[in-house]
Design a protein around this nucleic acid. Structure first.
Lengths: 184, 184
DNA sequence: CCCATAGTCGCACAGTTGTGCCACAATAGG
DNA sequence: CCTATTGTGGCACAACTGTGCGACTATGGG
């Protein structure tokens, strides 16, 4: 049996539960039902409930890394494409960011989740830093500003149910334009 | 008996529970213990559990409005002072923002909380808009950028346990400086 | 005095939570 | 054939959840 596929199945089920019903509903029985499994079968792959949360946020980080790695590193639009990966511009990314927001918020009071969320933050910051460098923007502190701006934009999109996030592109474009960078 | 004082007492207890133990622990019995009340007594002022969450996020909005209203409207530094009220620069504001983040995230899947969070967002946007106007910044979309930047900065401070948020002032100052505005 | 009202608290109930334990099926190696 | 491994699923348990209900005390008006 493919145990890794089972993990992915459960994790994606937990994502859907978080997005549709919120953290309160992230229970063993709800996840099992969403994944089409018996609660006891779920516990074979995930012995404890904490491990579901842990793997779920770790999966967000991995998915982000995969998407960024798929961008041609030498492309002149690498930076612009990468920054777009940090915005919830389609259903997939929106789902991931709803999950990372919910689990990230929970991580504030959950020692098990805290290091994972810190790693995710570090990854985003690193991407902003590299994007700045690729765009020839060297002002100190600019990467932090860019990270805060992008996370803030993503936050607002995710918090508003119907928002497709298209408008965030325009805001980001204007900001980069002011820095003397053209986006395509 | 002062029923309004009782409400405030319970709400602040719920804030502390959220900040210290997270949303999972926001239960009737935990709040009651934190407030020094018997669970049944709590239910006299708050008949249902939902009402605690609702009043808690509403209280955040009211506190923000009070703080902003206390700033001299004609002061030349009104905008700068107001923007600072949106950042978690001391324990009080940090607590409020931890609560608004936790409850705001929960509001995504909680129809009762959603309108309150929307109102809170609208208030912050309105403040950013007025701050832009007071600073003579008229570029369309700038208020949205400012709101995203500030919320993103606040988010990062709140998500990192030890962070005192002082660095966000520098980021914001640099951004406004680039727009031709000096901060004091 | 009596009585009504306001507020506090204990108890109980049905439902849900995470998890431990054990029985069962399938599959593969000998 | 027997046996071990891998995985599925059912059942039960203690703990916890929100909330309903009724008993209690204190206070103040008549």
């Amino acid at each position: 049996m493919d145990l890794q596929a089972r993990e992915r199945q459960v994790i994606e089920a937990s994502w859907r539960v978080i997005a549709r019903q919120g953290m309160r509903a992230l229970t063993v029985r709800n996840i099992a039902q969403e994944a089409g499994l018996a609660p006891s079968s779920l516990r074979y792959a995930f012995p404890t409930q904490d491990s579901v949360r842990e793997k779920s946020i770790r999966a967000v980080l991995e998915r982000l890394r995969e998407r960024v790695a798929a961008i041609a590193p030498d492309s002149p639009s690498w930076a612009w494409q990468t920054l777009q990966e940090l915005l919830p511009l389609d259903d997939e990314r929106r789902l991931e960011m709803e999950v990372s927001l919910a689990l990230g918020t929970a991580a504030v009071t959950d020692p098990l989740l805290a290091p994972l969320r810190a790693e995710l933050d570090a990854e985003v910051y690193s991407l902003c830093e590299r994007a700045c460098a690729a765009l020839g923007l060297e002002r100190p502190g600019l990467a932090r500003e860019l990270q805060a701006l992008i996370d803030g934009l993503a936050l607002h999109v995710v918090l508003v149910p119907g928002d497709d996030g298209r408008w965030t592109l325009e805001v980001l474009r204007l900001r980069l334009q002011e820095l003397g960078v053209a986006c395509d």
